[in-house]
Design a protein around this nucleic acid. Structure first.
Length: 426
RNA sequence: GGGGAGAUACCCAAGCGGUCAAAGGGGACGGACUGUAAAUCCGUUGCCACUGGCUUCGCAGGUUCGAAUCCUGCUCUCCCCA
């Protein structure tokens, strides 16, 4: 390893300009950088010697789905790639089974080997929507993606190795972590295994010889542990960069699938567009800063003069980003028709029910709604009807006992956004 | 190891022998308003073709005409002491 600390500021102005240019890009949306000076030194060496930085980012495959919150830090990794650096993407096959306590007010469930493996697959496919998956020629340098699974080294980790690793951390340091202090105060349980998590993540940095590690702000502690372990192993301690956490649709809590306030990377263009439109206005700054490369004045003016337009532009942009160019504007057209003009969508799904299952062509309305998956139980369907949320051929039907007559095709609407055209088979 | 407290519906949280399918809040859903923003207001929020029935209050038994509420055992958690 090159000892970056020994490299003085270069006398080469072109080199210094490039270092500053890269820093400007890399520090956008960044909260903590430990340390910025160190990052500059490393960039200087990387540029001078043509040795790209090894930039580590790890996710535990605890859920099969990534969302825009993950995309923030994935974009950061992508920015490093675009500047010619080397991305090391860690799939936390081993750590997923342990459960990261970061940013959580309770213990995470531990996953089985099978779950982890299944998640890991869908996972990479999603991550590479954001991160460049292949070698790219940019700035005369290759920004590569290296994928590693930490199960590869932890499965060969012996008992003695494990105890030695555990001895590198003190209880006092673990306990002083914000969320542990909070949990103890709240009388919440903390498993001993949760103390081990940061050590394993830190060990990953040693294994892959990371120059930089990325994470959300709730990851700062874990990232810093990596520095200690690297120093202990005789490596130069990694630079730790934390990105701002993206708030979820509720505008308060961080985006998280389990909180149900997320926009998944696999969501359809219509879903992405719609969800973004429902984000509170106050979040536009965060979303534009963290999810686009646009400069401040480019969207800020629009946001103050026409907030809806600013949001729609962002929504279209994000849909394009995840689904390719025309997807955003197409989604917008459909959205405007449905929500602004209050018209029935053009492409309503057609559902054909077997005539044999509908005696006399008549069907109880609650039963119909269940068949269409517009309600999960008949009781729920009845309530929906009673609440005036159901329209048949555009007319509200509030009678819970209504018998639907299916002579010809019928347009069924539940709430504002669920539509179906129902017909009987011949 | 000793002592104390607790486990209630998606979440938080009341209930402490019948009037409890279980207060209140949050969330979610539906409606009004609207820019699927914010704010506000209203309704719904276990299942079942339902003026009735069935299953829910950590798990398993028991007492009682009757239990979320009382008793016993078990599981899990928190606190204090060692």
């Amino acid at each position: 390893m090159t000892d970056a600390a020994d490299v003085p500021a270069s006398q080469d102005p072109a080199l210094e300009r490039e270092v500053e240019r890269q820093c400007a890009v890399l520090l956008r949306g960044v909260v903590d950088c430990v340390s910025a000076d160190d990052l500059r030194r490393r960039l200087r060496v990387a540029l001078r010697d043509g040795r790209p930085l090894r930039v580590k980012l790890g996710f535990d495959p605890t859920s099969a789905d990534l969302h825009l919150g993950h995309a923030v830090v994935l974009r950061k990794l992508r920015q490093f790639q675009d500047l010619g650096h080397h991305a090391v993407f860690i799939v936390g096959g081993a750590t997923a089974m342990l459960g990261d306590p970061s940013g959580k007010d309770k213990t995470r469930p531990q996953l089985s080997r099978e779950q982890v493996e299944a998640n890991a697959r869908t996972y990479l496919a999603q991550a590479t929507k954001v991160v460049a998956a292949h070698e790219r020629q940019l700035g005369g340098r290759a920004g590569e993606l290296e994928i590693r699974n930490n199960a590869d080294w932890f499965l060969g980790f012996g008992f003695a190795d494990f105890i030695r690793l555990a001895s590198k951390m003190t209880v006092a340091r673990m306990v002083e972590r914000d969320n542990f202090t909070q949990r103890m105060k709240d009388g919440q349980p903390i498993g001993i295994h949760e103390f081990l998590y940061p050590l394993l993540q830190g060990q990953d940095s040693v294994e892959v010889k990371a120059d930089v590690e990325l994470g959300g702000t709730d990851q700062l502690f874990n990232l810093l542990v990596g520095r200690d372990l690297q120093a202990d192993a005789g490596q130069a301690p990694q630079v730790c960069l934390t990105t701002r956490v993206l708030p979820g649709l509720d505008g308060v809590q961080k985006m998280s699938k389990s909180l149900g306030n997320s926009i998944g990377l696999t969501f359809s263009a219509d879903e992405v567009f719609g969800k973004v439109m429902s984000v509170p206005d106050a979040l536009m700054e965060a979303y534009y800063t963290l999810l686009t490369d646009l400069d401040d004045p480019q969207w800020r003016g629009l946001a103050s003069s026409d907030p809806r337009e600013a949001k729609a532009a962002l929504a279209a942009r994000l849909a394009d980003w995840l689904h390719g160019a025309p997807a955003g504007s197409e989604a917008r057209t459909r959205f405007d028709r449905l929500f602004r003009d209050r018209e029935v969508p053009v492409d309503v799904a057609r559902v054909v029910l077997p005539r044999a299952e509908v005696p006399g062509g008549r069907l109880w309305i609650a039963e119909l709604l269940c068949r269409l998956k517009f309600a999960s139980s008949r009781s729920e369907a009845r309530r929906l009807v009673l609440g005036g949320g159901v329209k048949l051929d555009g007319v509200v039907v509030a009678d819970e006992k209504h018998e639907v007559v299916l002579e010809r095709e019928l347009l069924v609407q539940a709430g504002k956004r669920r539509f179906a055209r129902v017909a009987l088979s011949d």
